[in-house]
Design a protein around this nucleic acid. Structure first.
Length: 566
RNA sequence: UGGGGUGUGGUGUAAUUGGUAGCACGACAGAUUCUGACUCUGUUAGUUGGGGUUCGAGUCCCUACACCCCAACCA
């Protein structure tokens, strides 16, 4: 047993992978003297999303927990889809999530070794060059219920295979003309074992190896071998690769090389979200979102720009657990994870999203004062700030109702409400424009009720609302984000429709909010709470000095909305 | 109709390997509150069905059912 921590997961429940890892290290001869080695192996053909975060937290987390190591390895065996832009974004995202890889590798680092091993398989009669084109190969492969037939090229001599493979490598044949195949079993009930393709011809420029190669390894041929080279002890992947495990094992065994253990877990599905790279790419290229980092995207870069914290994403990954059952997590769990963290760290401010003017008729014209407001009740070290107060204010339009239901305890005609950190006011008069829209409330304030000013100020009223003093208010652009999709499972589209038809037409609303002066001075990346409203982040891209643009990260829980909707 | 997997409250995940079915999110009810937030309390609700073994089964056996994955020269 070379796991350094005696009981690394003591006190918590182990997931099945941890159970198996501990069992392996306790019993397997091949692991004697080794310590846990994992890897996160993305293909650089898109941006990472929250599903990858689960895998990242798993692989890096396991390494941390057991005192092992975790590599970042780019699975770059298909030059037609991969790009340096994706490599860069992936490295950034992994680090932003709070992880640091031990080794940084590329499958393309191993192309030479892979080629030598392919030669070995040919020499030993385990691989052959096949001239069947894609269509013919499909026919020879058989179906789920019928066995395949041997390729007519299956029994070429070793010498001929050598010659042909060498010429494939030299670029003598056009794309798709031939393949190198493993000679396994065309009758296997597992289709992955019906002489799988190891190399295809692709005259394509590779983002790292340039034009050196025109034959490229397939996933199955590259992945396990890369794991072996890096000494990966546990190669963790998603469930759909389970059927590939026999092939993974066959290659390692036939090559007689170090043999890692592949283990599969269920990928993450989130309600109201699409997770496939193809669909995310489509959202980007067709302009349904502004880019991979659009704050509505489930990409790591989208979540980052939306204002999610790495801590909250890690905590989310911890709570959802790891298992072999393919289910769907309610997106509320993710939202709950950010709220929980932001409640601890975000300073509170007052901002009015939809203002209505309030004039305090008995507050002397021209008078101002400052009031003290706590920055974060959850964190005393965050201190306090001074809030300017005056005769004319703005409050939230939805904090006033002319004919409210009984349970409504905000402002109403003749009713009282407390202005947070200020005074209790009474609504005396409602002023409307020609169309009947309320444009102004004329109120009187109770001078005895200034917050914190003694016994008289302790008077209780049902409601407390937020406000902003008009004379010192600033205006800021605010983007109110909502879910990108309006259906729980966006992939489920009606006949003739696609997931795109499930896009929420109101997933973003741009407004100009009236905010307290402090808020206009926040720097990009700062996360705040707009009291009684939600958590917001100063956008890192579109904000200008002293002109922040706010993205809504998530709303506050709103039990009034529930009551009101009944 | 081949093969490989998986079924625990609404959702996700545990159960010392045969011994009180727990936790989180949600929902509901209440307490508290100068954020209808936070916090706190309580309630709700589960082992896919049917047999069997056993003093005792989520766990072992048999059987049925449901769902997921596999027929790219993608990963």
């Amino acid at each position: 047993m070379t796991l350094p921590n005696e009981n690394p997961t003591e006190g918590t429940h182990k997931n099945f992978i941890e159970v198996e890892i501990e069992k392996d290290f306790a019993t397997k001869e091949s692991l004697r003297g080794r310590s846990l080695m994992t890897r996160f192996p993305p293909e650089p053909n898109g941006y990472l999303h929250i599903g990858h975060a689960k895998s990242i937290c798993l692989n890096f987390g396991l390494a941390q927990r057991y005192g092992g190591k975790c590599n970042l390895r780019f699975d770059d065996t298909n030059p037609t889809k991969e790009d340096q832009e994706y490599v860069d974004s992936i490295m950034r995202d992994v680090q932003w999530l709070g992880f640091q890889w031990d080794g940084l590798f590329y499958a393309s680092d191993y192309f030479d070794q892979l080629y030598e091993w392919a030669v070995q398989l040919i020499r030993e009669g385990h691989a052959y060059v096949c001239d069947l084109d894609a269509e013919a190969m499909r026919q020879y492969r058989g179906t789920l219920t019928e066995p395949g037939r041997n390729s007519p090229y299956r029994d070429r001599s070793v010498a001929e295979n050598f010659d042909l493979f060498e010429r494939m490598k030299r670029g003598e044949f056009p794309d798709g003309a031939r393949t190198l195949r493993a000679k396994i079993d065309m009758a296997s009930p597992n289709l992955n074992l019906r002489d799988p393709v190891m190399y295809r011809i692709l005259h394509s420029h590779h983002h790292r190896t340039g034009d050196k190669w025109c034959i490229y390894a397939m996933y199955d041929w590259a992945h396990g071998e890369s794991d072996s080279i890096e000494g990966i002890t546990h190669s963790i992947c998603t469930l759909e690769f389970e059927n590939h495990r026999p092939l993974y094992d066959w290659f390692c065994k036939t090559l007689r090389i170090y043999h890692p253990r592949q283990m599969e877990f269920a990928r993450l599905n989130l309600s109201y979200t699409v997770m496939s790279k193809r669909k995310l790419l489509q959202l980007v290229t067709e302009g349904h979102v502004s880019g991979w980092d659009d704050p509505r995207m489930p990409t790591i870069s989208g979540l980052r720009r939306r204002g999610y914290t790495p801590e909250s994403i890690r905590s989310f990954c911890e709570t959802i657990g790891v298992a072999r059952f393919n289910g769907t997590i309610d997106v509320l769990v993710l939202e709950n994870a950010v709220r929980e963290h932001l409640n601890q760290i975000a300073n509170r401010y007052m901002a009015i999203l939809d203002p209505i003017k309030v004039v305090l008729t008995n507050y002397p014209e021209g008078q101002t004062e400052t009031l003290e407001a706590v920055n974060n009740p959850e964190d005393p070290s965050a201190g306090a700030r001074q809030l300017p107060f005056s005769r004319t204010l703005f409050i939230e339009r939805e904090d006033f109702m002319e004919n409210p239901p009984s349970k409504y305890f905000r402002l109403k005609p003749g009713g009282e409400v407390r202005l947070r950190y200020a005074y209790i006011i009474r609504c005396d008069e409602v002023i409307k424009d020609a169309s009947g829209k309320v444009v102004e409330l004329r109120c009187s304030y109770d001078p005895e009720t200034r917050s914190g000013s003694g016994a008289a100020s302790e008077r209780k009223v049902k409601g407390t609302i937020h406000w902003v003093s008009a004379s010192t208010a600033a205006c800021c652009e605010v983007r109110l984000y909502d879910r990108l999709f309006q259906s729980e499972n966006p992939e489920e589209a009606a006949e003739g429709k696609t997931f795109l038809d499930n896009i929420n037409p109101n997933s973003v609303t741009n407004i100009v909010a009236v905010v307290e002066p402090e808020l206009a001075r926040q720097s990009p990346g700062t996360r705040v709470q707009f009291e009684r409203n939600g958590y917001f982040v100063v956008d890192e891209i579109d904000s200008l000095p002293d002109k922040p643009v706010f993205n809504r990260i998530v709303t506050l829980r709103d039990s009034w909305a529930k009551i009101a909707s009944k």
